[in-house]
Write a protein that binds this DNA or RNA. Structure first.
Lengths: 335, 335
DNA sequence: CTGAAAGCGCTTACAG
DNA sequence: CTGAAAGCGCTTACAG
């Protein structure tokens, strides 16, 4: 096993003190240019790599951050884009991403109190006690963090504008002249769902469309709930379009329609929400709303770096609009 | 800012030395039970958390490992399952996963030489000079690592059995009595593709099927290559089934067939490879081969822990078979 | 069974 | 502009 090359070796090799080598590494302005050159040469020659642990221990930080994502993130391009963006910004600024799923979230507090991480980005969901406990503990140890998806207390957060998403879809529906609409919501009390519905009504109202021609049925975002509600409503009432508040529910609607011989988009238009992986591969491909996760990840990491390096909490509460992705399932221009 | 609680505080609080507190934390057998109890009580009382940096600096390791994945991993459930498995095993053993995409791979060597990580799991692809440079540098700093996907030199690796995958599909095709088969390969010289083709021929041969009725056309795994080859071959020659060596190429075949009025699976059976996200959502859903990424991730992390903790390289060269996922696209029993 | 002391490899006032 | 020295918070032979 080769001995470690340390700062002392570099110092000895060019007849300087460790302090000076340290100054060079930290770009201290007071060091003479000539001295710098000598030090860099020695570093090169000896293949010296500073020990990040020693550095962090004596007053620095590790430049590691934790990113907490849900336990289940398959089918959700959402998180992949988020992680990609975070990882890219992190790496370019000399930070490193430690990934933890929510089930292993307790480790994040450990890492924080052990000084292994200097910040965190946490996907927050509604009303999760374990998450909230984590937030206050992180707060106590003084590690900055940013919430993604849901606001909580006055912590900095970035989330998607669900009201805006609902409204965008309503404006699009109005443009296509879809007047009679069935909305399949998420579970009762789910804030995202409530916002999407409110936004949709807002958009319809703006266009002077009749809010009474909106039928609202409670689902739970699942495929089965989409199937069930479609099978209950469609035989009774005819609608121009369905707004399923998740792509999975929209998929359920599609399966029912296929069985019932209802043609999409000829007989019925359909929109989902989330732009899951499968949305564009369905037949017909599914119109949906896509969260700008790349932008969210980028902003989150940039904010976090600022919080870590400037030691101050910017008042950051960012809400970004989702993008409408119009596909075949709403291409019925005949109405 | 609250002052840090250190080992010295714990020691003082119970009238012992730091050495003893350290021994308790490291479960040294020589400490009296009574002493242990006192120390634990003080730790609890003072909310002490050991500083992992100091610990690692004085002879320990950080318990961080790096996982290197490709730049593009959307649409590939593959990597999500891999990461999930690695993260779970890691967390349960007190390790933490630092995620890096290949483009940011240089940071992994930095992390290794800075002592920030104690191991790595690296997705290896064929003939990548940058990756190979990383391997030898990691080797030089003495950080253990495991390759996923491709063997290289005598480094430990885990990969999927592409020969076995091709063979499994051939046996399935034979069972369905698909005799005339078109194989759409990957790019020329791609080892995975070569193996899949060889395996397929092996399986066909075992069943006594005629190898001359296999037509092989070179694609590049892309959707477009699948479309192009289908459009070139199918009008000229009629086949029972197509084995596209990637789901994307299979998708291209499907698109061509839809345009050309060829019905799958009635007129033609089709199988892909990879079980991408979209495979089960296509119409018809796509028969394909699924890599056991969860098992691979679990094994890789377990092996890595052993290498880190036992300081020896197990002779680990593991090859796992993929699983056939039979779906609608090959359900033509009429042949 | 426990403690005093040296050491891990850095940084950072404090001198000069 | 540079160095000597103390300090960051642990671990680990070495004594006793």
């Amino acid at each position: 096993m080769k001995k470690n090359v340390t700062m002392a070796d570099v110092a000895a090799s060019c007849g300087l003190s460790r302090a000076t080598v340290s100054r060079v590494l930290n770009r201290d302005k007071t060091v003479r240019a000539e001295t710098c050159r000598k030090v860099y040469a020695a570093i090169e020659r000896l293949e010296y790599h500073p020990n990040s642990l020693a550095k962090a221990l004596s007053g620095g930080s590790t430049n590691n951050i934790a990113v907490v994502i849900p336990d289940v993130w398959k089918n959700q391009p959402y998180y992949i884009n988020l992680i990609e963006a975070i990882e890219d910004v992190a790496d370019s600024r000399g930070y490193h991403v430690i990934l933890k799923r929510k089930k292993n979230m307790d480790s994040v507090y450990e890492l924080a109190s052990e000084k292994m991480i200097s910040g965190a980005i946490i996907r927050n969901t509604q009303d999760c006690a374990r998450e909230r406990a984590l937030f206050s503990k992180m707060d106590k140890v003084g590690i900055p963090f940013i919430l993604i998806g849901q606001a909580y207390k006055s912590y900095p957060f970035i989330k998607v504008d669900n009201v805006g998403g609902g409204r965008t879809l309503a404006l699009y529906f109005a443009e296509q002249n879809f007047r009679k609409v069935l909305i399949i919501t998420g579970p009762s009390g789910h804030i995202d769902s409530i916002d999407r519905t409110a936004g949709f009504r807002m958009g319809f109202d703006e266009k002077g469309f009749d809010l009474d021609s909106i039928i609202i049925k409670e689902g739970d975002f699942s495929k089965d709930s989409g199937y069930r509600i479609a099978s209950e409503v469609l035989p009774e009432i005819s609608v121009d379009a369905i707004f399923a508040q998740s792509d999975r529910a929209a998929l359920g609607v599609m399966l029912y329609c296929r069985e019932a011989g209802i043609k999409i988009p000829e007989d019925l238009s359909l929109a989902g929400y989330d732009d899951n992986f499968f949305a564009k591969y369905l037949t017909p491909s599914l119109t949906t709303l896509q969260a700008p996760m790349f932008e969210i990840g980028t902003l989150a990491m940039e904010m976090l770096v600022r919080m870590i390096e400037d030691q101050k909490q910017p008042f950051a509460r960012i809400i970004l609009p989702p993008r409408l992705v119009a596909r075949e399932s709403t291409l019925n221009k005949s109405l």
